[in-house]
Write a protein that binds this DNA or RNA. Sequence first.
DNA 1: ATACTATCTGGAGTCAGCTCCAAGTCAAGG
DNA 2: CCTTGACTTGGAGCTGACTCCAGATAGTAT
Lengths: 143, 143
Amino acid sequence: MQAAEKERGLSIKEVSQKFGISQDTLRYYEKVGMIPPVTRTAGGIRSYGPADQSWVSLATCMRGAGLPVEVMCEYVKLYRQGDATIRERLQLLIDQRDALMNRKKQIEATLKRLNFKIARYEIAAETGSLPPLSEEDRKRFDP
Amino acid sequence: MQAAEKERGLSIKEVSQKFGISQDTLRYYEKVGMIPPVTRTAGGIRSYGPADQSWVSLATCMRGAGLPVEVMCEYVKLYRQGDATIRERLQLLIDQRDALMNRKKQIEATLKRLNFKIARYEIAAETGSLPPLSEEDRKRFDP
DNA sequence: ATACTATCTGGAGTCAGCTCCAAGTCAAGG
DNA sequence: CCTTGACTTGGAGCTGACTCCAGATAGTAT
């Protein structure tokens, strides 16, 4: 009776555990169109097949990197319109890649600054007070 | 009359332009304690001296990288308590560095995924439809 | 059939981080 | 002194992304 008649999908609970995101969030993503409608059982219960899981995977990946929900919605919308939107989707992906690369640069700059401060604080933790900064250092990194 | 009697600070407008953040946001940062109280003129108008600007610089840098306002508030609070909090501040900085490094990793993973998709879409833009993915590819990168 | 748990829906609530507003002050020019 | 425009405050409002809830339904074990 539980043999593979059709592909067995995962329940929302299982998907929630697999991707580390709440059931509420999964329903929310679907509601706002960040992923396409998930496969349902006859009774209307979500059963995430491989394709559904792929979308969840993509959505959590993009959100995890901080891309807006709205952008994923747009991508899904275009995707569902078929091959005619391939160029648009490509452009969207490129735009988001650019955005992420900028974001990464920002983070790298901030990491540099943090590392500089940490180095000073490691000395300070020994001596009990912060060493004064040189003029040049003050020009790039401050308090 | 406008000779250097004391250091001339920048107006909120100038600081706003210099750092590319709104005057409202500058006041907000100060209000919530994300930067220490800014120097004022006799009349109560903000006049950002070098130290004030340094704090703004730090705040915008950290916020730009996505660190929470609350964390900067904590840092400022500790800073204002003096040398006794040096170890705590060091720990805070280290924690935030770790958080940022994770964030950076997430972004790098997402960039990989985006690049993979973009490569497929560039082919698709030529041929008019997406090439099917190999089984192995599907296992890491999907829709 | 009964009990019990998992899932469903629509809609309201929450939180962070700004952003806007009104009513009032300050400062410089005429 | 008067006007004009930048600046002040406290507080309300907004947006994005969830998060929670109540009441209804589905599936499962007894």
